[in-house]
Amino acid sequence: MSKILICPTKYQQGAGELKRVGEYAKNYGKKVLVLITNSGYKRIGKEVEASLSEHGVEVVIDYFKGECSRSEIERLKAIMEEQGLDMVIGIGGGKILDTAKAVAYYCKRPVMICPTIASTDAPCSALSVIYSDKGVFEEYLFLPTNPNMVLVDTEVVAKSPVRLTVAGMGDALATYFEARAVAKSDSTTCAGGSGTLAALALAKLCYETLLTEGVKAKLALESGALTKSVEAIIEANTLLSGIGFESGGLAGAHAIHNGFTALPETHQAYHGEKVAFGTIVQLILENADEDELGEVIEFCIEIGLPVTLKELGIRTINDSKLKEVAKIACADSDTLGNLPFKVSEEDVVAAIKAADACGRYFLGETK
């Protein structure tokens, strides 16, 4: 199996970068669709329009309808063709960015991705998650290329709710442990081949950055400060985790997350919060070294990621619920099979219980 690494053509990050968006966009198109929410436009839309106009780029603004759905993609494709637009710029959160990538793919146009939060590693990926108009997951749309450019304005990201960036750290936390497992089993990555040494190195750097900068970044964000630690964590959440997960591979943590989505009580938890707990479950399944397991749990506690089922919203724990989680996590179509050993549904139930017990132990709680 070939080794494959994929990544955006260009990644650029810094304070005030959205004010220069026209300088970059003019290299890809002259008449662009800007996809943004109504609230997002009120915050930053005028400066984006001004920058594009300053550099001779004609702008068509369209407000996102809320779901990365087939109907929304078709609606935007029609606008692209009717108005002769030659580029897509997505500004906002994950669903807007996924929609922008999908529209650009179907219209064979370049795409610029401008995340305004750092809660997931989706901006850099060659993937769009497609939902129904009511928000029910339908399919993954694997794209032939990554975005032409990812532009991250850290000033804008730093003003988003702190919990979102912390959730991004939870998503990023899994990157190294999943890539390490995939490397051991020589499983296929999201890029369609074996993982590279480069991807594994970036995944490890992602984890190391979380440990050294995560707490400092959270404290800075809570005080409204954009510091070097915040910059480092935004890069870890977005670029290091983005390349690490896609070219390094997914394994247990994300499969466990997918299982938890079956329980309505976990819907109040963000993606990265569930992934963080899934990372602890994966480490239990691997019978990880006690020091490593403790390091991960203590990190989660320190920055405010969930380490118990109660913190995920599950007040009543019973085997029937956990078996439902395990059944989904162990599905042949998911990534739990990328672990370098066989895992049964019973193994997953036991690991979830043990992870919860470990979390309560480190919190100093009794059952």
Rank of each mutant, 00 (worst) to 15 (best):
Q12D: 12
L127H: 03
S71G: 02
M1A: 14
S185M: 03
E273L: 06
T145E: 12
S223I: 01
L141C: 02
I256S: 02
N148Q: 12
D86V: 01
A181S: 15
L250M: 15
K353I: 02
S344M: 11
P306T: 10
G22Y: 05
I6H: 00
G92C: 10
T238W: 00
K101S: 07
A126S: 13
G16A: 07
E82D: 12
A326P: 09
A25H: 01
S53G: 02
V111M: 08
A350E: 14
Y28I: 11
F142G: 01
V343C: 12
S39V: 11
P161E: 11
S69P: 01
A198F: 12
F299E: 12
A276K: 11
G313V: 12
V325T: 05
M112N: 02
G14L: 11
G94N: 02
L33P: 14
L210S: 10
H267S: 13
G272P: 11
R315D: 15
N338L: 07
I89Q: 06
L221D: 05
A104G: 13
Y24K: 09
Q12H: 12
V59C: 04
L336H: 04
G259Q: 09
S128D: 08
M169P: 14
G56P: 04
V230M: 00
N27W: 02
A251Y: 04
A104Y: 07
G192L: 04
R70L: 10
L197I: 11
V349A: 06
K327G: 08
E23P: 00
D62H: 14
G135A: 05
L263M: 08
M87S: 15
L5P: 08
V157A: 07
T189R: 01
I301R: 04
S185H: 10
C190L: 15
E302M: 05
L33Q: 12
I73Y: 06
L285I: 11
A251W: 06
E235L: 08
F137N: 03
I44D: 15
M149Q: 14
V111W: 03
E178L: 09
N338H: 15
D171K: 08
L141N: 04
A174H: 02
T188H: 00
A126F: 05
A198C: 09
A172F: 03
Y63D: 09
T189S: 02
V157F: 01
T99Y: 12
M169N: 12
G337P: 03
I73H: 04
K108S: 15
G193T: 06
S53A: 13
E155L: 14
A50W: 00
G14T: 14
L97I: 10
L221R: 13
S2F: 09
K228I: 01
P115R: 06
H271Y: 04
E47A: 03
F177A: 08
A350S: 15
A104I: 08
K218M: 05
K204I: 07
P147Y: 04
I243C: 05
N258H: 10
T212L: 13
V136Q: 12
K228G: 15
V32T: 13
I96W: 10
M1V: 13
S344G: 13
V57D: 01
L221E: 03
L151A: 12
G84W: 04
S125I: 03
G16H: 03
A158E: 05
E222H: 04
Y41A: 01
V103K: 09
A253Y: 02
A276M: 06
T189M: 01
N338R: 06
S194H: 15
F177D: 10
N237C: 09
I314R: 00
G242N: 11
G304H: 06
